[in-house]
Design a protein around this nucleic acid. Structure first.
Lengths: 335, 335
DNA sequence: AAGGAAAATTTGCGCGCGTAAAATTTTAAT
DNA sequence: ATTAAAATTTTACGCGCGCAAATTTTCCTT
C-alpha cells in the first residue's frame, strides 16, 4: 500500500481512506487513485485491514450441519444479503460436533467479526462456551434457540408448523401419528412434539407419538430404518403419518416404497405422509411432500436485519427479542 | 501475547515459538507456559499469526455450489482431513456465479493460504482470473478440470462412469438414451455426453441424446420440467433413460411420477432410469436410483494428499498430473 | 481580498504477531 | 574444570494496515 500510494502520488493513509469509503476523499484524489489502480492492480489485504479496525466488516455465519440442504440454502441467501450490505461473510459448519462448534467460536474471535449469526447445534452444544462467546461478540441466534443467549433470536414458530399440518390432516382424513427421533439433536424437534401433543388434545384427539432410535445427522437413513421397523411391526395406529421434519420424511417415504406401500392423499393410497420444513428436495420426492414451509426469506431477512441493527447499535440491543415466523402449509401429493 | 509472556516470565518470541510448535521450546519452558495458559486462558490471534508467516497453515476450499449436497458432502470430508493434518481450512462457495468466484480468489490471496483446493465453476469461470490465481497460489484443481491450470487435477473418470452404466443398461435391457442439459455449467457433463456417444458406437448401438433447456444450478427442477416435456412429447426413443447426473435424475423421476409412469428394473415397469454421481440422496429416491458412484473418499483423500505434497515441495510439483478415479456401479431399484 | 470554518490530507503511532540475527544458556567433549 | 558446539532465548525489526491528532488545502462568507 505504501508503494502503491507512492506511485499514485498520494499519502498512504489517504489511500486507506479511499478503500474504506471511496466517497470520503476528494473527487480529484479519487480519480488519481482509480487511475493508478488500473495500472498496478493493487488490492488491500483484508485481514491486515481488519486487524486494527474498530469495527470490521466481517460477519460470521455458523450452522450445525452444512451438508444439510436446508442449512446450505439458508446460508446461501444470508451470505448474499451480507455481501450486498458491504460485509464479508465467512461460513462455518459445526458438522454436528461440539468440538468443532467450539473451535469455530475460537476462530471467530480472532476474526474480530462485527457480528455473528449463529445456528447452534442445540442439545449437544457446549452451553457455557456459547454463553461466553455471546458476551464477547455481538451474536444473533437463529434457527434453534438457546435460552437467553445472544442478543436476539430469529426462527420459525414450531407450534404454527404443527398446528397447520395437524389441523389439515385431521380435517381431511385420519388424525396423524407423529414420527420422530427419540433423541433429536435439535431443540426444535422437542417443541414440535410438544406442539403435536397440545394440538391433538385441543381438538380432542388421541395423540400417538412414534419415536425411533438413531444418532447423528443422517436423518434420511434414520427415517428409513425407523420407517421399515415401524411398518413391519405394524406400530402405526393410523394411516396418516406426520414426520417431525422433511429429511426424516424422505427416509420414511423410501421405506414405504420398499414395503410396497403407496403414499398419497387419494383414497386408494395406503398412507398419507406429511412433514415440516419445506426442505429444498421435498417437492421432488415421489410423491411430492406435503409440508409446512419455513418462511425462508423472512427468517433470513430478519436475521440479517437484526444483526445489522445490533452492529449499528454497538453490539447491544435493549432487551433480547425472540422473533418467530409462522409456517405456510404447502399441499402437495403425499397428504 | 506481550502481557501473557510477561506474566509467564518468558519473552514473547519464545511464547510465539511455543504456539508454532510446543516441542521447539525446552521442557521446563513449556511447562511454565502451559501453567500460565491455565490461569489466563490466552489464545493467539490466528490472522495476526498468518500475517507474517512464511508459510501459513491456512488452506482454502472452493466449490461452485455448496447448496448442492454432492459438494457439501465432499467439502465436509476434505475439511476434516485438513483439520486432522493441522491446517485451518476455510470454505467458500461460488454460488454458481463468476463474480463470486473471482472475489473469492481475491479474498483467498490475502488469506495467504499454504494451498488451495479449487473446484471451479467450469464453463462460466473467468479462465484468465483463475490462471493468474494459480500462478500466485499453490492450487490443486478438483472435480472439474481446466486445461493446464493449477499444479494438479484430481477428479473422476467420466468415461468410466458412462461406460459402466451404458454397458449395464444395454446388457440388461434396452439401450439407454442420454438425458442432459443442453448447456451444462460443468465440463464433466460434456465429457459424459461424449463418452456416451463413444461407448454406444463401440458396442454398435444407435446413440440418442435428449438435450433439455435450462440455466443455472437448479438441476432438479430443470430435470423435472425437461422430463415432463420429453415424456409428453414422446421424445424418448427407448424405455431406458440415462441421466447425465443424479440431480437431473431426481427431477426426472419426479416427472415420471407425475405422469403416472412407473420406474424400475422389473418387467412391468414403464421406464428404467439410471444416472451418475451417487448423490447423497440417490438412495432415498423412489425407486432408489441406480447410478455410477464417485469414489468419494479416493477423490477427497487424493486431493488433500496432493495438496499436502504440493505445500511441502514449496508450491511447485514436477509436471502437472491429472488423477482420475473410476466409478463404481451402484445397482439399485430404478434400473 | 481577507478571514475563518470545514474538509481533506499527512504525520506518527500501534495492532498482534513472525523471524533473522545476536546474546545467552545448556550440553558435550576434552 | 575448561571450552567449543549446540540449543535455546532474547533483541530488534517489520508485516500491512487503521486511527487520532496535527497540518494543510479548499471553499465560503463578509
Amino acid at each position: 500500500m505504501e508503494e502503491f500510494a507512492a506511485v499514485s502520488g498520494i499519502s498512504r493513509p489517504t489511500v486507506s481512506k479511499y478503500f474504506n469509503d471511496p466517497n470520503s476523499v476528494r473527487a480529484s484524489t479519487r480519480e488519481r487513485i482509480e487511475a493508478a489502480l488500473e495500472k498496478y492492480d493493487y488490492r488491500p489485504n483484508i485481514f491486515a485491514m481488519n486487524q486494527n479496525r474498530k469495527l470490521t466488516k466481517n460477519v460470521g455465519i455458523v450452522v450445525p450441519y452444512l451438508a444439510d440442504p436446508f442449512f446450505a440454502e439458508i446460508v446461501r441467501v444470508i451470505e448474499q444479503e451480507c455481501i450486498a450490505a458491504g460485509f464479508s461473510p465467512t461460513v462455518f459448519s459445526s458438522h454436528g460436533q461440539q468440538e468443532q462448534e467450539k473451535s469455530i467460536l475460537d476462530t471467530l474471535r480472532s476474526l474480530k467479526p462485527a457480528g455473528v449469526l449463529l445456528a447452534p447445534l442445540g442439545r449437544s452444544s457446549d452451553k457455557s462456551a456459547i454463553e461466553d462467546f455471546c458476551k464477547n461478540v455481538p451474536t444473533v441466534l437463529f434457527d434453534s434457540n438457546l435460552e437467553g443467549m445472544g442478543e436476539a433470536f430469529v426462527g420459525s414458530d414450531n407450534h404454527s408448523f404443527v398446528e397447520q399440518t395437524v389441523q389439515y390432516l385431521s380435517r381431511t382424513g385420519a388424525a396423524p401419528c407423529f414420527f420422530e427421533m427419540r433423541n433429536p439433536a435439535n431443540p426444535n424437534a422437542n417443541k414440535r412434539r410438544n406442539a403435536y401433543l397440545e394440538v391433538m388434545q385441543s381438538i380432542g384427539l388421541e395423540p400417538n407419538v412414534v419415536s425411533i432410535d438413531g444418532e447423528g445427522w443422517g436423518f434420511e437413513e434414520i427415517g428409513r430404518q425407523g420407517g421399515l421397523k415401524v411398518l413391519k411391526d405394524g406400530a402405526l395406529a393410523t394411516n396418516t403419518v406426520l414426520c417431525s421434519n422433511d429429511r426424516l420424511a424422505i427416509g420414511f417415504l423410501s421405506a414405504c416404497y420398499e414395503m410396497g406401500l403407496t403414499v398419497g392423499r387419494h383414497e386408494k393410497c395406503d398412507l398419507r405422509v406429511a412433514s415440516h420444513d419445506d426442505h429444498p428436495f421435498s417437492r421432488f420426492t415421489c410423491p411430492s411432500l406435503t409440508t409446512a414451509a419455513h418462511d425462508y426469506s423472512a427468517v433470513s431477512d430478519c436475521s440479517v436485519e437484526t444483526l445489522f441493527r445490533l452492529i449499528e447499535s454497538g453490539g447491544k440491543l435493549g432487551d433480547r427479542t425472540e422473533t418467530l415466523f409462522p409456517a405456510r402449509l404447502i399441499m402437495r401429493e403425499s397428504a
